[in-house]
Simulated assay, not measured.
Amino acid sequence: MSKPSPNQAMNQETPMPADAPPMLECVDLTRIYREGPQDVTVLDGLELRVHAGERVAIVGSSGSGKTTLLNLLGGLDRPSRGEVRIAGESLLELGDTALGRFRNRRIGFVYQFHHLLAEFTALENAALPLIVRGLRKKRAEAIALKLLARVGMEPRADHKPGELSGGERQRVAIARALVTDPSLVLMDEPTGNLDQTTASNMMRLMDELARTSACAFVVVTHDPTVAAHQDRVLRLEGGRLTQQPAAD
């Protein structure tokens, strides 16, 4: 059965069985980089499980490997050892073409620096994942426009990135990540360019999608407010994840 669309998701909840397998699972995830004559281990046997509808924040000092971890979770990099499984499928077993299709179908990614295409409008940027999937442009843009409305960007839909503020570009990037109804959304400092009101609206949208469409979120952030809003907070240190104690 296909996952409900964003509009359907607003009107129904998707209960998950208590024993459901994780939406995201990392097993012995290791990433080693070669720097001159030395090997540098950034991730060292990391384990992570995130269930459908769960929101997990990852915090840690600069250089601790948070972006490296997100790139591995999103299939943008390959591990030195171990594997990542999303919805029960191992990314390690997918070739480059199949992996690209899988990312388009299952994963939404909000990059720290947007990565919007300068020659396209906000609407065209948000619709692009659906067009890549094969939807007709008119249909893709109709769906994308609804997502832009949900992040407050419908009035700016025909503007190109150079005509938008940093916060506006980030909201377009969020709409683009959500437009395909992904099973997993990865966010790298998603509120870095957002004002407090817009950041709060984004977190409410995350809440809604996690609750109604069983979308899982992994959010890398330095913002303690964003981290505290998630179901769990994990700290990346020494190449591994540990549970962050709840704030008093």
Rank of each mutant, 00 (worst) to 15 (best):
M1S: 10
M1D: 13
P6G: 01
P6R: 01
N11G: 07
Q12Y: 06
P21C: 01
E25F: 04
V27E: 11
D28R: 03
R31F: 04
E35F: 05
G36S: 10
D39V: 06
T41K: 14
G45L: 08
R49P: 03
V50E: 15
A57P: 00
A57F: 09
G60N: 08
G60P: 01
G60M: 05
S64M: 13
G65W: 13
K66D: 06
K66Q: 00
L69F: 09
L70T: 03
G74Y: 15
R78H: 03
P79S: 02
S80K: 07
R81G: 12
G82E: 02
G82H: 09
I86N: 01
A87C: 04
S90W: 12
L91M: 04
G95P: 14
D96S: 12
F102V: 00
F102P: 10
R106C: 06
Y111L: 09
F113Q: 12
A122N: 03
L123S: 04
E124S: 01
L128N: 03
V132I: 15
R133A: 15
G134Y: 12
K137W: 08
E141Y: 02
E141A: 04
P155N: 14
E163V: 06
Q170S: 11
R171N: 08
I174P: 00
A175E: 12
R176I: 01
A177I: 09
V179Q: 04
T180A: 15
P182Y: 00
V185C: 09
T191M: 04
M202V: 15
E208Y: 02
V218W: 10
V220I: 15
H229I: 01
Q230W: 07
R232E: 08
R232W: 10
L236A: 10
G239D: 04
R240D: 06
L241R: 13
P245F: 12
